[in-house]
Amino acid sequence: MKQLLVSPSPHVHGEANTRKLMRDVVIALLPAVAVSIYFFGFSAIKMLVVALVSCLLVEWLIQKFLLKGECTICDWSATVTAVLLMLNLPPAAPWWIMVIGAVVAIGIAKMTFGGLGQNLFNPALVGRVFLLVSFPVIMTTWTTPEGWFGASVDAVSGATPLAFVKEALKNGATVQEIFEANPGLSWSQLLFARVGSAGEISAIALLIGFVYLLARKVIRPHITLSIWISVFVFAGILWLANPARFVDPVFQLLTGGMLLGSIFMATDYVTSPMTPKGQIIFGCGIGILTVLIRTFGAYPEGISFAILIMNAVVPLINMYVKPKRFGRK
């Protein structure tokens, strides 16, 4: 008779595995990728290919020659980082920027810590912020979305709504004046298409991805919703206090990397807290920091920094915030 298997219970396993989860994240990002290709055409495709190739290559090389472990590029996690990185950069940026971003994101932010699951900071965000502080001009030169293959690398550059408003406010204009002078800043416009990085173009596409992630139970809504609510409340208080100096909370929610960050970057498993309570604290921290940086800081956009700062707090949150135990009311 052949040998029977013997192991401790449980003897069966659920459907979920790391690969499927990561693949679901990629699928959830597809609408945003499709929109960016629609608006930026060839340059978006080029950026995507460069991001994928460089991220996967860096991961494979490090895993093979430095860590000498099993090949991990099939677990889709590097693919997630690549797609996020692509969506986080201006579509018209030169291709080598993407390669540098990939090396920093995968090589420094992920693999130096030991690979998937070990990193303290979200790799794609580290890549983006590294590029933002190293190449500020390239990273803030945006092309206006124009239509299928309408925009090419040398198209006219525009400012993101956030940068535009910030600049105008600095020059003494009131919020009402800015919005009256620029109908492009209306909500409907913001929902569908605006200036920004490849992934910030369409709020609708990102929201579709969010719904997909929730439906597939890849993420729970705690982090994302607490970011939105805290941004809304905090920005709302400022707005109520002085509507001439501070923009309204809906504008805060719909602009910049808010949706991309809150749906896809802050919810990154590895760098977010483990308990629902901790996740809410984490989300609120991100929301408040983002509004602070946006309104009082030097940069027009602050969600990247806010997420990275909160990433650093995660171990502390995990240590002190415990789940609701059974039998301890």
Binding site: Q3, L4, L5, V6, S7, P8
Partner: peptide
């Protein structure tokens, strides 16, 4: 000769707590 194949976590302590051995 082995009589069964142990398929649990690879640790003598875990295995020993489960059964007398493979």
């Amino acid at each position: 000769a082995k009589t069964t194949t142990y398929d649990g976590y690879k640790s003598c302590a875990v295995m020993n707590s489960l059964y007398p051995g493979d």
